[in-house]
Design a protein around this nucleic acid. Structure first.
Lengths: 208, 208
DNA sequence: CTCTGTGAACATCTTCACAGCT
DNA sequence: AGCTGTGAAGATGTTCACAGAG
C-alpha cells in the first residue's frame, strides 16, 4: 500500500467522527461535500484521502455512512482493543486516566506509574498507581501496546527508552520536549505550551 | 514579511526551549547542527527557519544562545503577557488551570467558566469558576486574548462563536470536533483521541 | 444529472550543496 | 577552516477539472 501522510491519517479520524455523528442523525449516505464541511476540509481532499484505500463511494449518491465508518475503523486499526499505560500520575495524567472517551474508542487503561511514593497506591481511572522500581518488568507484564507519557521534560527521554525496551510500540508524549524513538516505536507529541505559543504568534502577526 | 508555515512556527517554539536549555547549561553559542539535534530536526531546516526572519547567526561560529532566544521570543509574541480564560471546568480544564507551565511562558489565567452550577464558585488555579448567564459580557470584561475550550463536542461550536463575539482572538480547542472560526480568530485544535488513533494506525501498519 | 475517482497542475515544504562571511 | 544563509532541486501535499459510473 502507498505511504499515507500523517495529515491524511488525522483527517480520517475526523471523518470517522463526522460519520458517527451522521449515523446518530439517521443519515444513510453522505457526500464528500457534506463530509468535508463537517470535518473542516474540502470535498476533493475527502475523495483523495478515501481513494487511497479503495473505492467506497457510489457515484451520483455519495458514501454509505455505516459502511464507510466501518471501513475507516478497520483502516485506523480500531477493529481491536488497545492496552494503554499512563506514565506520570500528575494532574494531566490523572485527568487523562479519568477521561472515558479513550475507552469508548477501544483504548483500555491497564496501568499507571509514578516515581513519587506519595502517589503510589492511589486508585485512578480503575487502576492503582504503581511505583517504578520494576518499571520495565511491570509494563511488559501488562502487555501494554501504547503508553501516554506525562512526566516532566527532563525525565521524558529516559521513560521513552524504558518503554521501548518493555515492548511498547506507540508513545503519546505530553512532555514539552522532543523525544527520540529508540527502536521502531511510533511517537506522537502533544505540546500544549507550544500550541499556545503558535496562537501568540498568529495574534501578533494579525495585530501588526 | 513572508508567510511562515505552521510547522515552521511550531519548530521555533522547540528551538526556543532548546535554547533555554542550552542557556541553563551555560552555553554561549550553538550551531544549527546542535540546535537541530536538540529539537529533532535537521541543521538545514533550522537555518532555513531562522533565515526567514533575518540573519541572526555568525558564520563560522553559530548562533548566540541568549540573543537568539530573545529574538525568538519577540517573533513568537512572547514579549508580552497574554490573558487566557478556560471554558469548561471538567477534568481537563481543571488540570490545565493548575498547570504552571503556561504562566511561566507569559500566559496568565484570568477566568474560568462552566455551565454546570455545581462547578460554579469552585476555586481553581487562582480564579473562581463562573457560570455562563453573562458569558460574553464577562469574557469581554476580563479582556481575554486567548481561550482554552474544554467543553463537550456538541457545545464547542457555540462556545467558539460566543468567544469570538466577546473579542477573543485566539482559541485552543480541546473538544474532539472540528470548529470553525467565526471572524478572523485563530484556532488550534488539540485532539488527544485523534492522536491515539493515529498511533493505532501506525502500529497496525507496522504489524501487517 | 449527480457525485465519485483520479491524473495533472499547482503549491508548499524539505533537503541539498555551495558561495561567502568571520 | 567552520558554519551560516540561500537559491535550486527534490519531495510531498493540495486543488483542479473532468471522464465516467450509477
Amino acid at each position: 500500500m502507498k505511504r499515507i501522510s500523517d495529515s491524511s491519517v488525522r483527517r480520517l479520524s475526523l471523518y470517522l467522527r463526522a460519520l458517527e455523528d451522521a449515523l446518530a442523525h439517521g443519515r444513510a449516505t453522505i457526500s464528500s461535500e457534506a463530509l468535508a464541511r463537517a470535518s473542516g476540509t474540502t470535498s476533493a481532499q475527502v475523495r483523495k484521502d478515501l481513494s487511497m484505500f479503495g473505492s467506497f463511494g457510489k457515484r451520483g449518491l455519495g458514501y454509505g455512512v455505516a459502511e464507510l465508518a466501518e471501513r475507516l475503523r478497520g483502516i485506523l486499526g480500531l477493529g481491536r482493543r488497545w492496552r494503554i499505560v499512563i506514565v506520570g500520575a500528575g494532574k494531566i495524567g490523572i485527568a487523562l486516566a479519568q477521561y472515558h472517551g479513550f475507552r469508548d474508542r477501544g483504548f483500555d487503561l491497564v496501568g499507571m506509574f509514578d516515581r513519587d511514593p506519595d502517589r503510589v497506591g492511589r486508585r485512578v481511572g480503575g487502576v492503582t498507581v504503581r511505583g517504578v522500581n520494576r518499571f520495565e518488568h511491570d509494563v511488559r507484564g501488562l502487555a501494554a501496546d501504547v503508553a501516554i507519557v506525562t512526566v516532566p521534560a527532563d525525565a521524558a527521554q529516559g521513560v521513552v527508552d524504558q518503554l521501548s525496551r518493555a515492548g511498547v510500540r506507540g508513545i503519546l508524549n505530553f512532555a514539552p520536549t522532543a523525544v527520540r524513538a529508540t527502536d521502531g516505536a511510533a511517537i506522537r507529541n502533544v505540546n500544549m505550551a507550544l500550541e499556545l505559543e503558535a496562537l501568540a504568534y498568529a495574534l501578533t502577526q494579525g495585530a501588526d
